[in-house]
């Protein structure tokens, strides 16, 4: 996946140490090796939970980042796409006995259609109104899922039979799930990297940074925004399907909750918006933290982890608006011996 594009014609081929836009770096390769090491190593099962959730949420944060970071479409409604993806593959499995290996593609596609629809609905909206529309859209999907009981099981939710098997994508060992989630993370990361170096990626940057100029230069902003949202939603939907296969249970009040939408936006914001490595770092930092808080305080303090998240986000936003990836970029420019 060494997509170097136009850059390589000017500079000699070299692999940078720290992440750069559109190129693979040693940092990313080493991180990947560490991830593989964590899956292979024999570690306690509770820790493995944390690791595979960090992979899953890393992928979801990257998916959100395609819309929010690259195209400037800040969404607080991505849980809708997550839920649509999860429900689609689960309904296909439970009602029609279609293997999730196929169902996931349907889940991603339908979530993508929802994403495109949202982008078109909000075509004329910018700023706060766009954001609130995404929130309202997700609430409509949530209440719809709650009330359409014949399809979604309503408030009782949907369960997947816990009989392990390759065809049903249900596994007895958490290590298999960890491979699955790491695979998802790597695929979404590769798509993000390819996007960064592609013509379409540059269209998105142009639309995000100056829509009028982009459209004067011949870029179609509406098309760009719609495709970016559809891609982001489709990848989120795939994540939702994987989540369903792991937890084997879906219920609208969790999978389509505003809290989850907030979490999808929070991870890239802390990690660094509009970078590929940022959302991954954000997830690797925050997902273990949140699992730790949850296991430490249990249910005695509902909402505590969100209190800590949101405080952290205020601090990050006010003092380190470029996030962890920004700190890394600063490190890349640091020349102690020159």
């Amino acid at each position: 996946m060494l997509v170097t594009g136009a850059v390589s014609t000017k500079k000699p081929m070299r692999v940078p140490i720290l992440p750069e836009r559109g190129r693979l770096s040693w940092f990313e390769l080493v991180l990947l090796l560490v991830c593989i090491g964590l899956v292979v190593a024999s570690i306690p099962s509770s820790l493995r939970d944390v690791i595979l959730l960090s992979f899953l949420f890393g992928g979801l944060a990257l998916a959100w980042n395609i819309a929010g970071g690259y195209a400037g479409l800040i969404s607080f409604g991505h849980a809708a796409f997550f839920g649509v993806g999860g429900y689609t593959s689960t309904i296909l499995l439970v009602h029609y006995d279609i293997t999730p290996w196929i169902g996931i593609w349907f889940g991603g596609t339908i979530a993508g259609v929802f994403g495109a629809a949202l982008a078109l609905i909000c075509a004329r909206l910018r700023g706060p109104f766009f954001i609130l529309s995404t929130l309202a859209f997700a609430e409509v999907v949530r209440i719809g899922a709650l009330n359409w009981s014949s399809l979604t099981g309503g408030p009782e939710g949907l369960s997947i039979m816990p009989t392990p098997g390759l065809a049903s994508m249900v596994f007895a060992s958490k290590a298999t799930y960890a491979w699955l989630m790491l695979g998802y993370l790597v695929v979404v990361y590769a798509i993000t990297k390819a996007l960064e170096a592609s013509r379409f990626g540059y269209y998105l940057f142009a639309i995000r940074d100056n829509e009028d100029a982009a459209s004067a230069a011949g870029v179609n902003p509406l098309l760009g925004r719609t495709l970016a949202m559809a891609l982001s939603a489709a990848l989120t939907g795939v994540g939702g399907s994987l989540f369903a296969q792991y937890f084997l249970y879906l219920d609208p009040t969790y999978v389509i909750s505003p809290e989850l939408s907030f979490q999808f936006a929070l991870l890239p914001a802390v990690g660094g918006l509009g970078t590929a490595i940022g959302p991954v770092l954000g997830s690797f930092l925050i997902t273990p933290l949140s699992e730790l808080l949850r296991s430490y305080f249990g249910n005695s303090a509902a909402g505590l982890h969100l209190v800590i998240y949101s405080l952290g986000l205020v601090v990050v936003m006010l003092y380190f608006p470029s996030g962890l990836a920004g700190a890394l970029a600063k490190l890349a420019r640091w020349r102690p011996f020159s």
């Binding site: 907030f262 509902a302 909402g303 969100l306 209190v307 998240y309 205020v314 936003m317 608006p321």
Partner: peptide, 23 residues
């Protein structure tokens, strides 16, 4: 700061207040 900062900061404030109230 960039406009996103106000968006995320006030959004975070709203989540913060909701969950403090919940606790």
């Amino acid at each position: 700061k960039p406009h996103l900062v106000v968006v995320f900061a006030t959004m975070a404030l709203s989540i913060f207040m909701q969950n403090v109230a919940l606790m």
